[in-house]
């Protein structure tokens, strides 16, 4: 559905995107992560025809983003980071304008508007001015609008930024419902790594390059095991003991906590508690999260 080949984008001497290649399959949720300034926005802008690439080719739904801009624009829907609704208009007016921008025939407009409002549960608010909507309702309306022209690919650029946790959960509910119903391909960026878990595959971009691309599960496996956080009355002695008696992948001490990475945490912990001589004061087992994946690939937290 999306094919990116040798994509490069330079701003004067600065290389924002360096030789990127990836494919996104039909019906896939593709998570696109990276720290700020990694080249994510530039990539999305190129994919959505807002920015011409310096070199390389991008096709979406079989159309070239440079040569067949209008075909691409008809094939994609975009939910932007910031609100792009007209707040002085009603929900219906916003959707009507969108129908006209995308050349949806007069006969189909009403049924399409009803259909998308149904998906996001906003049917009752059809005649309300958007400025009277809550943040979550506005987001949902934007999602509805993005679907109005039956896009093949939906770009979701930080779709839940600035929303409270409950509304965030709701928005994702709608997005997942959509994937099930319409089998739309989704290209997603987010700062909330727990949200990226719903992706079928994840690409991590840093310094303009794609440094990892795989399923969330396999990315986490690549980290080589679970992390156990241990606190004891004498950390130095405990670390010595662990080194002597156990086979660990990695062992480090930070802020009075021992971080111990092992391949199988269950086996390790049952043995460890039995044999440890130094008095134990705390123990925490952490399965790797996408945050750990992110940290290990980029050396930074996503919000840095």
């Amino acid at each position: 559905m999306i094919e990116v080949n040798n994509l490069k984008k330079n701003y004067k001497s600065f290389q924002a995107v360096k030789n990127s290649n990836f494919r996104v399959e039909q019906g896939e949720i593709f998570g696109f992560l990276g720290p700020n300034g990694a080249g994510k926005s530039t990539t999305i802008n190129i994919l959505s025809t807002m920015l011409p690439p310096t070199s390389g080719t991008v096709t979406i739904n079989g159309y070239d983003v440079v040569k067949e801009q209008n075909r691409v624009r008809e094939s994609i829907g975009i939910i932007f980071q910031q609100n792009t609704l007209d707040e002085k208009l009603t929900a219906k007016e916003n959707l009507m304008l969108h129908c006209k921008f995308y050349g949806i025939s007069r006969a189909q407009r009403k049924s399409r508007i009803d259909e998308v409002l149904e998906i996001v549960d906003l049917k009752e608010s059809i005649g309300t001015l958007v400025e009277k909507f809550s943040g979550g309702m506005q987001r949902r309306l934007e999602i509805a609008r993005g679907l109005l022209h039956y896009p093949k690919v939906l770009f979701l650029d930080e779709p839940t930024v600035g929303l409270d946790p409950q509304t965030r959960a709701h928005v994702w509910e709608y997005i997942l419902k959509l994937k099930e119903k319409e089998n739309i391909t989704m290209f997603l960026t987010t700062h909330y790594l727990d949200e990226a878990e719903i992706s079928d595959r994840i690409a991590i971009m840093d310094h303009g390059e794609i440094i990892a691309i795989d399923t969330p599960k396999r990315l986490k496996q690549q980290l080589g095991g679970d992390i156990i956080e241990i606190t004891t009355s004498d950390n130095e002695a405990a670390m010595k003991e662990i080194r002597e008696n156990f086979d660990v992948v990695d062992l480090s001490l930070k802020d009075d906590v021992i971080y111990c990475k092992v391949e199988n945490s269950d086996a390790f912990v049952s043995e460890f508690i039995k044999t440890l001589q130094t008095p134990l004061t705390g123990l925490d087992i952490r399965k790797p999260t996408l945050n750990d994946v992110f940290l290990s690939f980029t050396g930074r937290e996503i919000r840095d």
Binding site: M50, N70, Y102
Partner: peptide, 14 residues
Amino acid sequence: DFGYMREILVSPVS
């Protein structure tokens, strides 16, 4: 600044 321009610019309107 408030974003509506993007809605127009990503649409197929020339």
